[in-house]
Each structure stands twice: as C-alpha cells, then as structure tokens.
Design a protein around this nucleic acid. Structure first.
Length: 498
RNA sequence: UCCUCGGUAGCUCAGUGGCAGAGCAAUCGGCUGUUAACCGAUCGGUCGUAGGUUCGAAUCCUACCCGGGGAGCCA
C-alpha cells in the first residue's frame, strides 16, 4: 500500500491512496481535494475532463472527513503542500461523512476537548502525537542501549502511606486499594534484581489542580540504578534529555514545523552543558539584585509592548471602515490576537509584583513556587539541574547530604521557557536504621514498608533514580502551552469523556 | 477551597436599557490552479438557569450551574 509519507518514491507513477477528505476547494472544472491518510496530507487535483462522469459526481459529493479511495499520477508541484500532488484519474467514495463539527476555522478549547476523538485528526494534534511517539521511542532506545531493563511497577497499590499527594481510591475485592502515584519504591526493588531498570507507565494523582501543567492521569518514566550516586544520577538525566531532544529534532522536523516550534533553545539543549546549581544558590539567585532588575525590566518590556499593541489596534480600527471584505476579516483576526496578547500582558503585569515578592523575600527552607521556578529558568537557555534541597520538603526515602544533614541529595530538572519541573529524582537512603528513623519521623508505618526495608537488609547498596513526566516533556518539545494536547485522551479535573 | 475572566446561531464572536447581528459551517448557484480559496443567495436563536428591577432586559440587580486561566500541590 502507498502512503502519502512515501509519495516521493512514486513520482510519475499511478498510485491509489486510501484516506479522508481534510479540506476541499472547487471551481467549475476542478476540485482540489486535500486528502489525509494518517501518514500525511496530499492535495489531489480532479479535472473534469480527466475523470469519468461518475468520479466527477463522486468528487462533488465529498464533504469534510468523507472517506475514499483515490487513484492518480504522482507529480511534483511546489504549489502543493508536501511538494507532491495527485493528478486524479479515478476516485471511489467509501462513506460520505455527516456534518463534521470541526471546521477549518478556529474553535474554543472546550468544544475541541468535547470532540477530542475527532480533534486528534487535525494537523497540529496529529503532529503533537507524532512527536510524543518519537519521544517514547527515544526513551526506550536510550535505556535499552545502555543495558537498562524495562520493568513494570503495579498500578494498584495497597498503601496510601507515602504521604503528601491525594490518591485515587478504588475497591480491590474486599480491600481498599489506590492507584499508583509513582512506581519508584518498586523500581528500587527491581534495580536490586537487575541493576539498571526503568519503568514506563501511568500514574494517578487526585489533586484538584486546574492548571496547564497538570493531569490526573499521566505517564512517567522512572529509571532506578544500583551503585549510582547523585552525580551519576544527574549525569544520566542530562544525557537522557539530550538524547531525546536530539532524536526529536533530527526525525520530527516537519512535525515541529507544523507546530510552529522555534527550535533555537532545543538546539542549545542538545549542544550546551546544563547548569547545575544547588538549592541554596538558587535561593541566592532569587533574592539577588540581578533578579530585582530582571523583574523591573520585565514590567518595562510589557508596558512598552502594551502601548505598541494598543497603537496597532487603533490604526487597524481606522483602516477597518473602508477596508475590503477579505482585509476586514484579516483585521478582525489580528485585532482578536492583539486582544488576547493584551489580556496576557495585563495578567502578567498584575502577577509580576507577586512574583517579585515571592522571589526577593524567599526564605531558605521553603519549596519553590511556580513563579520562582519560571524566574530561575529564565536565566538559562537549557534545562537547569537544581540539587540538594532542604530535607524537610522532600520525601522520606531520600539520602541526606553527608556534608550537611539538613540537605537531601535530591535533584530536579527544570525545563526552559516556563515548562517547569520535568524531572525529579534523588539518591536513596541505603542504611536500614536511618530509613527506619525517617519512617518514624514521617509518621509512616514500618509494617506497610516492610518489604521496602528488606531491600536495606539484604545487600543494601547506594542507588539513585529519577522520574520524567512524559506529558510535560511533550509539551516542552512541541511548544504547546497546555499538557492536555500532549496525550490522546487527557484526564483532568472535570474531564472523563471522551 | 480561594482569586480572576467568561457563557448570545452547529463553531468563533460582536451587541452594555429600545426590531437578535457578522464571519465560518450547512444548502443552492457562479468561477480553469485553489492553499482557512473567492463571489452571490438561502437556512439557522430557550441570549447558561431561576428569580427580581423596569413601559421595555442579551444588557441592570440577586442566587445558582457550567467552563477557561491562576494559587496551593506536583511530573
């Protein structure tokens, strides 16, 4: 079977494509059918005098998303999307689609989410899913090539004990069960069996978060490595991200183009070393004069931009009166864009004082808020590794810094461009008695964690690992502003269908 | 849970006290190469819900419902 993605192998040959109508245009003796087949989109030109009467009528009956088989000669034509088009000799309708809800015009998020099952057919969504697939492939490749074994942690768990986050409860025969929020503890057990392992599976958080960075169901990749310390962990995390980003840049160029992704910072991510700063250094950065100046500059930039946009809008409104119809439509669109950007600027201007307040008055010992993370990452073009956090704000299983008991040997990787934390990891506490003490401190029962403590009884070794959030990574690489577009059927607050 | 913005035609939106509107989609017609094609016509309404103010409410007031963005929490 011939697919649109390989049309260049069939130049000047007669081929048959099977697909759906993405869009169509017509004139008296011509139809321009944009046909998509899952692998891409191809413009098919139907000329009245080169097809049978039946085929011509069939072309006339087609509507958006109708399915068909279409036959023709592949010709190179730079006027056509993809560089090739089909000079149609015959076409057969498989089904004439009913009124398709997603028209070529713009739609609101709510409507699109309601029609997610159809939205997946649209170009940008299609491109994002291709990038997601490439990332998944690259992840497996990276670990498999380094001798890691992929192993699965359970999805049902018996204990809600790990603490901080809200879990989904469910019934498990006569017992209470919870959906996993992390495979990590199981990952440690598997690493003690195989040395290097990674899990790749869904995780669930019942947090009532309504933000562009949160889903209730998302996919996490969690490598766990025996005999790795924090530095080796950070080394691996950096190599890993570089590998994945590089694969996407090399192999999903056209998809990134469809997504209109500016790839400058992604290229820097592949080429440059990631900065590594300690939590304490990060706090100093937040409280610095330099940060204050940057924030002042941000306010100034936005105020200037606001004036420019307002002026442009005034001029467009003047022009609107005597503009031709198509120009009016263009102006309306631009005015709408400007409105949206002004709203964003106004919101920023309202928020920046809070950001400033949060950053400049940041007290050592607190956890970073969203704005603090964003301000930190704005200092760099690549992801940044922040390590050695106050132990109090981190999980019980993290090893303390031998040089400073107040610190946990934790590391977070923050993506640039405001995409936030994509990786969280640590060196794990390997000493049995210390771990027992931590359980008690956190009010966790030793009974529930008996099997976990066994790992420290029988040949305990230094080990480390981290977790990568797949959807946040996809959002970052695609330049999407919301994780709901990074997974086929997102599950979030108030969204269980489709 | 809190803050904030919103809900008008299938979709995207305008209308802020006086006849319910536009573009797109759909339907019909026109156009020889279109790129969200274009041009003309037709069709299309419980103005989120309930109550109130008023001669008159999409518009003002009250309550509620639903959604977006953000905070907290996190990947």
């Amino acid at each position: 079977m011939v697919y649109i993605s390989n049309l260049s192998d069939h130049e000047d040959q007669k081929v048959t494509l099977k697909g759906w109508i993405y869009n169509s245009r017509s004139s008296k003796n011509l139809f321009f059918l944009e046909v998509r087949d899952g692998s891409g989109i191809c413009q098919c030109v139907v000329a009245k005098d080169s097809v049978s009467e039946e085929a011509w009528e069939a072309a006339d009956s087609l509507r958006q998303e109708s399915s068909l088989e279409i036959t023709g000669i592949v010709v190179e034509d730079e006027r056509s999307i993809g560089g090739y088009e089909l000079q149609v000799t015959n076409l057969e309708v498989i089904q004439i689609a009913e009124d398709y809800p997603i028209t070529p015009k713009e739609h609101g998020v709510d409507f699109l989410m309601e029609n997610r099952h159809l939205w997946l057919r649209s170009q940008r969504q299609w491109a994002a899913m291709r990038v997601r697939n490439e990332i998944i492939y690259a992840i497996h490749m990276f670990f498999q090539e380094r001798g890691f074994v992929q192993m699965d942690a359970p999805i049902f768990t018996g204990n809600a004990a790990e603490g901080t986050t809200n879990l989904f409860e469910t019934a498990y025969f006569d017992e209470e069960a919870y959906l996993t929020q992390s495979g990590q503890l199981y990952g440690e057990a598997m690493a003690m069996a195989h040395g290097l392992i990674y899990t790749f599976g869904p995780t669930f958080r019942a947090e009532k978060s309504k933000t562009r960075r949160h889903l209730t169901e998302f996919w996490m990749i969690e490598p766990e490595m025996a005999f790795y310390d924090l530095n080796m962990n950070m080394e691996l995390a950096e190599d890993f991200i570089k590998f994945v980003v590089n694969r996407v840049l090399e192999r999903r160029h056209s998809e990134l183009e469809i997504l209109e992704r500016d790839t400058e910072k992604l290229k820097k991510t592949v080429a440059d070393d990631f900065p590594r700063i300690s939590y304490t250094e990060a706090v100093e950065t937040l409280r610095s004069d330099k940060m204050a100046k940057m924030l002042d500059q941000m306010v100034e930039d936005r105020e200037q931009k606001r004036e420019e946009l307002k002026q442009e809008r005034e001029e467009l409104k003047k022009e609107h009166g005597q503009a031709k119809k198509w120009r009016k439509a263009q102006i309306d669109q631009r005015v709408k864009d400007i409105g949206g950007r002004l709203d964003q600027i106004e919101e920023d201007l309202r928020n920046i004082p809070d950001w400033r307040d949060s950053a400049l008055n940041f007290e050592w010992g607190e956890d970073f808020g969203g704005s603090d993370e964003t301000l930190l990452t704005m200092q760099y073009d690549t992801p940044v590794l922040v390590h050695r956090y106050p132990a109090e704000i981190k999980a019980f299983y993290m090893k303390r810094d031998p040089e400073d008991e107040k610190l946990a040997l934790a590391v977070d990787m923050l993506a640039p461009e405001g995409y936030g934390e994509i990786i969280g990891g640590s060196e794990r506490e390997a000493d049995l008695e210390t771990l027992r003490k931590r359980l008690t401190e956190h009010g966790l029962s030793e009974e529930v964690f008996g099997w976990y403590l066994d790992l420290r009884k029988y040949g305990s070794v230094p080990h480390s690992g981290f977790g990568l959030g797949l959807e946040r990574t996809v959002a970052w690489l695609c330049g999407l502003d919301h994780v709901r577009e990074t997974i086929p059927f997102p599950r979030m607050m108030g969204r269980l269908t489709p």
